[in-house]
Amino acid sequence: MKKYQLFLLSVFVSLNVSANEYTASFFGIKSDGITNNTGSIQKAIDYISEHRGGTLVFYVGRYLTGTIHLKSNVKIRLEEGAVLVGASSPYDYNSSTQGARAIIEANGQSNIGIYGKGVIEGSGNTLIKNMNDLLNAGYIKKNSEPGLISFTNCMNVSLNGLHLWNGPYNALTLTECKTVNLEALDINGRNIPSSTGIVAKGCKWVNLKDLFVEVKKEPFINQNNQFVTIQNAITNKGVTL
């Protein structure tokens, strides 16, 4: 555990050194709730990642987007009132590899995080309906169900302070990640029959602290993980995860 703390500390220091801040508007990202910003947010992440990393900051507003791929050394900060809104068509979601699809997706990246008092809002039942319509028409095949956040094979991941709302399926999927800190998250999929909380598989060193999870299906799926710690993480019924 001590080793682990030291390791975390060094990560924290190194991240702070390169913490250049960029505001969303610099990249032409629109807060009007109707402009689909996928291309611009992705360009911003790529640009920041290519320029020694930093933080992309979203202030109050609704930022509509399809899948964006988070890259190493890039953090996203959602200020209070900022809402990253997931687009409502399954076509708007893709995955860089076999990983689960999501609004924010990362594969094989390190030193990434999302924090602040803002919201990541899925399209919930609307997306589910759109997906079922396309499946019934035979236009799409069964594919992974788009979640809010999905990280695969990432290292040094932190999520802090966020509201993860209205996710149609898994709010947060962690696959074979190492050193994951989840703190002060409010996960809510109240009206969505398939809403699921956190799914962690094959991860090492996962820290859950001060979580509130209200979903219709499993609040926490914990499979083949090592070193999971849970502090004050409860469901809407007051039950510990």
Binding site: G33, E80, G81, V83, G118
Partner: peptide, 11 residues
């Protein structure tokens, strides 16, 4: 509606 009010003062 466009420019929805901000989600704030939670929980």
């Amino acid at each position: 509606y466009r420019y929805e009010g901000p989600v704030e003062d939670l929980p």
